[in-house]
Simulated scan of single mutants.
Amino acid sequence: MTSRLVVLVSGTGTNLQALVDACADPAYGAHVVAVGADRDGIEGLARADRAGIATFVKQVKDFTTREHWDRAMADSVAGFEPDLIVLAGFMKLVSDDFLARFEHRVVNTHPALSPSFPGMNGPADALAYGVKVTGATLFVVDGGVDTGPIVAQVAVPVLDDDRVETLHERIKTAERTMLVETLGRMAREGWELDGRRVRIG
Rank of each mutant, 00 (worst) to 15 (best):
S3Q: 12
T182L: 04
D38A: 14
H31V: 11
D70M: 07
N108C: 03
A100I: 04
A24C: 09
T137P: 05
V145S: 10
V151D: 01
S116T: 01
A88N: 03
A37Y: 00
E175L: 12
V151W: 08
V107G: 00
A100F: 06
K132Q: 15
G144Y: 11
T182N: 01
I171F: 09
D160Q: 14
A18N: 09
P82I: 08
F98Y: 09
L8F: 05
T182Y: 08
V141Y: 02
V131Y: 09
R101I: 10
L167F: 13
E175V: 10
S3R: 08
M73A: 12
A22V: 13
E43N: 14
T64C: 10
V198S: 09
L167R: 05
V33I: 07
A128R: 15
L19H: 05
S114L: 15
L159A: 12
H104M: 10
G29E: 14
E175R: 13
V198C: 04
M178Y: 05
F139M: 06
L16Y: 06
E169P: 08
R4N: 10
A54W: 04
L16Q: 04
G144V: 05
D96M: 07
A155Q: 15
R185L: 09
A100G: 13
T166S: 14
D49V: 09
D83H: 11
V133Y: 12
L84V: 11
L138A: 04
K92H: 13
L45D: 07
G44Y: 06
A22L: 14
E175H: 11
L8M: 09
D160R: 14
V145T: 14
V106K: 02
A24Y: 07
S3L: 09
Y28P: 02
R176V: 03
V107P: 01
I200F: 03
A152H: 03
F63G: 04
R188T: 15
A155C: 14
S76H: 15
V33A: 04
A51R: 11
D96R: 14
D162G: 06
V131G: 03
V35R: 08
G130D: 14
T134W: 10
C23K: 03
I42D: 04
V180A: 05
R105F: 03
G184H: 01
S10R: 08
V86T: 01
L179Q: 05
K172P: 02
R185W: 09
V57I: 13
S3Y: 03
W191E: 02
I150E: 02
T14A: 12
V57F: 01
L5V: 07
V7C: 12
V140R: 00
